[in-house]
C-alpha cells in the first residue's frame, strides 16, 4: 500500500494540474480509504512541478 501511495503522490506532484485520468488511475491502484485521504490531501492544492534544484 505504502509504495503505491508514494508513487501516486510523486505522480501528482509532477503535474501542474491534475486531470480526470490522473484521478481515475489513482482510484484504480489505491485502496478506497487511501484514495479518499489522497483526495482530501490534494483537493484545491496547486501542485508544483518537481522543484528542479539540480
Amino acid at each position: 500500500m505504502n509504495q503505491k501511495l508514494w508513487e501516486i503522490v510523486q505522480l501528482f506532484k509532477e503535474k501542474k494540474e491534475l486531470s480526470t485520468e490522473d484521478w481515475v488511475y489513482a482510484e484504480s491502484v489505491l485502496e478506497p480509504e487511501v484514495f479518499q485521504l489522497l483526495a482530501l490531501q490534494f483537493d484545491g492544492k496547486m501542485n508544483i512541478v518537481s522543484p528542479g534544484w539540480k
Binding site: L5, W6, V9, F12, K13, V34, L37, L38, Q41
Partner: peptide
C-alpha cells in the same frame, strides 16, 4: 517533494 503529503495521508 511530496514527502509531507505522503506522511500526512
Amino acid at each position: 517533494t511530496g514527502a509531507i503529503d505522503y506522511c500526512s495521508i
